Amino acid sequence: MKRVSILFVCMGNICRSPLAEGILARIAREAGLADRFKIDSAGTGGWHQGKQPDRRSIAIARAHGIDITEQRARHIRPDDFEEFDLVLAMDRANVAELRAMAPGAGNIMLFGDAALQTGEDIPDPYYGGPEGFELIYTRLLTGCIALVETLGADQASLSGKTSSVR
Results as ranks from 00 to 15, higher is better:
K2N: 15
V4M: 10
I6G: 02
L7H: 00
V9D: 02
C10T: 00
M11G: 07
G12I: 00
N13E: 04
I14Q: 08
I14A: 10
C15F: 09
C15K: 07
G22V: 03
I23P: 01
I23L: 09
L24W: 00
A25G: 13
R26G: 14
R26A: 15
I27S: 04
A28C: 13
R29L: 13
A31Q: 06
A31G: 12
L33I: 03
A34K: 09
A34M: 10
R36N: 13
K38W: 05
D40Q: 08
A42V: 09
A42D: 05
T44M: 02
G46L: 14
G46T: 15
Q49S: 12
G50R: 03
Q52V: 13
P53Q: 07
I58N: 02
R62F: 15
R62K: 15
I66F: 02
Q71Y: 10
R72T: 01
R72H: 05
E82Q: 11
F84H: 04
D85V: 05
V87Q: 03
V87W: 08
L88D: 13
M90H: 07
D91Y: 11
N94E: 04
N94M: 05
A96M: 01
A100P: 00
P103T: 04
A105Y: 05
N107A: 06
M109F: 13
L110G: 08
F111E: 01
G112E: 03
D113P: 07
A114F: 12
A114T: 12
A115Y: 06
T118V: 06
T118S: 14
T118K: 09
T118L: 08
D121E: 02
I122S: 06
P123W: 04
P125G: 09
Y126E: 10
G128T: 08
P130R: 06
F133N: 04
F133R: 02
F133W: 03
L135M: 15
I136R: 02
Y137S: 05
Y137H: 06
A146C: 00
L147W: 12
V148G: 08
L151I: 06
L151G: 06
G152L: 05
G152V: 04
A153Q: 14
A153T: 14
D154T: 11
A156D: 11
S157G: 15
S164T: 09
V165F: 11
